[in-house]
Design a protein around this nucleic acid. Structure first.
Lengths: 260, 260
DNA sequence: GTATCTAAAATTGCACGCAATTTGGTATAC
DNA sequence: GTATACCAAATTGCGTGCAATTTTAGATAC
């Protein structure tokens, strides 16, 4: 039943063992609080991938990441497994082992990601259209405002890509958060950054299409304002299908990344 | 809860200690091949949850599962983290730690799961409707056959619930696999068993609704056969919305599980 | 030069120890 | 009887050792 050694009464046993690499070996004070190590490792890796600093297709070696992030392999492993299941990382089988790599950017994968985001977000928009009229109109007003700012940012000279992108993300997120429950929201929080990987790489080549996106956004707001769930669903679907098509053209021209 | 089940003879510090005499002569052979330990732990836990053998809301203690599955905590942890991210397990924060429990079955969660499955599967059906006519018609024929068998199984006396359920799963899976890419397929492979949790618990009370489901299935096959993507998408959506409504009534009558 | 075999390095999968923290129970004060 | 202080058990987070396996490098034969 009880382990052979009681943990608290034992105290210090002066076993001279190899000093830990990361911490100053004097006292075992946690520099980073418990439970933060794994989550920050996840966050950092994910940001590196989304931002493109970790190139598509790059191999992800546990010990190397462990050294670079200055944590042990355990949180790195946990982060990699999560990223893999979310789709940011692919695991290729090498014999019986699994080798992790940054997920490549391919036209087929992009098509699928945009398809999934469109399907889920349009379902959320349909729910949002079923809100009380007051809440619904407030939501439509906020989205209209974001759409205007987005239009302004993208039609300025030179276009403010970063700001436009952030506004674009917020436009969709506001609508989603209003209609979706926690699970759908979590799923979109994982999928949207993966769409963002494609957007970041190819956004500069798609700036000309902002007009079309702008019209699609207006249709979404209008349907929401009217409380028409079917129309909202279709409008969001059209928007993502349009995006997918716009990016597809660019990806096929500029080539795929990390698929080799 | 004795942690040393002697199966793995690792761990002795190299210092002069108790000689591992029983292991000295022969090499320690892995009883279970590498990489299988974690995945089988995941599979077994997931099956236990879906089948209801691990009740909704039950706490999941790493050391206890580790002893029961006869593996160390490491693969159990990996399996739990994956199950949590997939939604089979919830993690409640206790101070700075995370305590895992089997995800409860609630009306709100069911609504969301069915919504997501409907959104994703209808998107896959739309793709499937865009296949070559030959492949499309073969798919429609197979689905029609499954739908017939399903109807037979559910209208026999007594209704063969298990077989009907398996046919139902296969009906949807065939359609999905034909139209979806690997990501969408993987996502549905995670979400469908979660819908199955509700179906298993409440299926006996919903048998009377098989007629309605049967008509909905026929509509899906018809749309696919005609190659009408829009109609296929709508038909799948109607089917899942109908299912959600049928189960919602039962859940609210019979009560929620594990939500306390 | 190419192919094949072999030894070493690299990498992953798993087990386990330890510390930090929470939880539960018991004694004590009021 | 209830509230509080406190100690022990339980539980999780993280680091690390070790073996299995893969990959790489080097040597040798052809």
């Amino acid at each position: 039943m009880t382990p052979s050694t009681t943990k608290h009464a034992a105290g210090e046993r002066g076993t001279a063992r190899t000093p830990p690499r990361h911490a100053a070996s004097r006292r075992v004070i946690r520099l980073v609080p418990r439970q933060e190590v794994t989550s920050t490792a996840y966050q950092r890796l994910r940001d590196l991938i989304v931002a493109g600093r970790l190139a598509a297709g790059a191999p992800l070696i546990e010990t190397e990441l462990s050294a670079r992030l200055e944590v042990s392999r355990t949180p790195v492993r946990a982060a990699l497994q999560r990223l893999q299941q979310e789709g940011f990382v692919t695991a290729s089988r090498a014999g019986t082992m699994l080798r992790a790599a940054v997920a490549p950017l391919t036209a087929a994968d992009m098509r699928e990601v945009f398809l999934m985001v469109g399907a889920l977000e349009s379902a959320a928009a349909r729910m949002a259209a079923g809100l009380e009229p007051a809440a619904r109109e407030a939501l439509a007003a906020e989205m209209a405002k974001l759409a205007d700012e987005l239009h302004a940012a993208s039609s300025s000279r030179p276009p403010d890509i970063l700001r436009a992108h952030e506004l674009h993300v917020r436009f969709h997120r506001v609508c989603t958060a209003a209609g979706a429950g926690p699970r759908l929201l979590a799923e979109l929080d994982v999928l949207q950054p993966q769409a963002e990987r494609y957007e970041r790489v190819y956004a500069s080549a798609v700036v000309h299409a902002f007009d079309e996106a702008s019209r699609e956004h207006a249709a979404i707001v209008e349907a929401l304002c009217a409380g028409d769930g079917d129309a909202a669903e279709r409008a969001v679907q059209r928007n993502w299908r349009g995006s997918a098509e716009r990016y597809r053209q660019v990806v096929t021209i500029l080539g795929e990344r990390g698929n080799w």
